[in-house]
Simulated assay, not measured.
Amino acid sequence: MTTLGAVHRPQLPPERLRSVVLAAEESGLDSLWLWEDCFLESGIAAASAALAWTERLKVGVGLLPVPLRNVALTAMETATLERMFPGRVMIGVGHGVQDWMGQVGARVSSPLTLLREYTLALKALLAGERVTVSGRYVSLTGVALDWPLAAPVPIYVGGLGLKTLDLAGEVGDGTILDASADLERVRLIRSSREHPVVVYVETDSRDRAFVTDLVASVAEAGASSVVLQQSATSEDPEGFVRFVASLAGHHSMG
């Protein structure tokens, strides 16, 4: 069964988030995804507000740029959200846009090495382990969460390059593909692993038949969740999330 979600793009000002979140909750949308794009909005801060305003909506952050964030802080924030809003938090991590990482002095020479070290450490911390590691980029000495989780939160790894996607299959609990990915890339991932695949699909259309066919083609390629996103210039995000919810309500995604 393929679920259907929507993106709230950070190009909209933060004060617009509440009305979009409430529209998603009231219309029955399964999930709303947020982005931590530099230098727009904090993904964790926005997710915390969205979860607090709702009772059932699942909220994903995809992606958190790992060069920008200490892994212990990300583990603390993720565990805090999951303990307050159990079962509704989804976290994705990735390289971040390299030019942006360079602007803040966080660009690394081996993004793949960092992402591997970071994801493994993050999962271990969320699993309640006491972690000591001295890697090329990640260094922890006897770090453990004082408020661990009863069950670990799945950590998605996002990317597009084949090496990053191979890493996602190796260390991630799921994979996130952005809207530039073609269906062959989705099929390739699903043929090599069994974990969830979230695929962003960009569309501004409100043509129900067109979008339903678009979602069906991505689902048939193997996506476990199709997440529709509007362009950065969209002026009706509330209407868009209601439209996406109506698609899920009237058409089987299985």
Rank of each mutant, 00 (worst) to 15 (best):
T3M: 05
G5C: 04
G5M: 09
R9C: 04
Q11A: 11
P13K: 13
S19W: 10
S19Q: 14
V21E: 06
L22M: 13
A23V: 02
A24D: 07
E26D: 15
E26C: 04
E26K: 14
G28H: 05
L32W: 00
W35N: 06
E36A: 00
E36H: 08
D37F: 01
C38H: 15
F39S: 11
E41D: 04
E41K: 13
E41I: 03
S42R: 07
G43S: 04
I44V: 15
L51A: 03
E55K: 15
V61C: 11
G62P: 00
L63A: 12
L64S: 00
P65V: 01
P67L: 06
L68V: 13
A72E: 12
A75C: 10
A75R: 05
E77T: 09
E77D: 14
A79E: 00
T80L: 05
T80Y: 07
T80P: 03
L81K: 03
L81R: 07
E82C: 04
R83Q: 14
P86E: 10
G92L: 09
G94D: 01
G94P: 08
G96I: 00
G96M: 04
Q98I: 01
M101V: 03
G102Q: 07
Q103C: 10
G105W: 09
G105H: 10
R107S: 11
V108C: 09
S109D: 13
R116Q: 12
Y118V: 04
L122I: 00
K123D: 08
L126N: 10
A127N: 07
E129N: 10
T132K: 03
T132N: 05
G135N: 10
R136F: 00
S139V: 09
A144E: 14
L145D: 02
W147M: 08
P148D: 07
L149A: 08
I155K: 02
Y156N: 03
G161W: 05
G161V: 04
L162G: 14
L162S: 14
T164N: 12
T164L: 02
L167W: 06
A168F: 00
E170H: 07
D173H: 10
I176L: 11
I176D: 01
L177I: 02
D178H: 14
A179H: 13
A179C: 06
A181C: 09
D182I: 05
D182N: 15
E184F: 00
L188E: 14
I189H: 05
I189E: 00
S192F: 03
H195C: 04
V198K: 05
V199T: 03
V199D: 07
Y200C: 00
V201D: 07
T203L: 01
T203H: 05
F210E: 15
V211E: 06
D213M: 06
V215D: 06
A216N: 11
A221G: 12
G222D: 01
A223R: 02
S224D: 15
S225H: 14
V226M: 08
Q229N: 12
Q229G: 07
Q229A: 13
A232Y: 11
S246C: 06
A248Y: 02
A248D: 04
G249N: 13
H251V: 09
S252Y: 01
S252A: 11
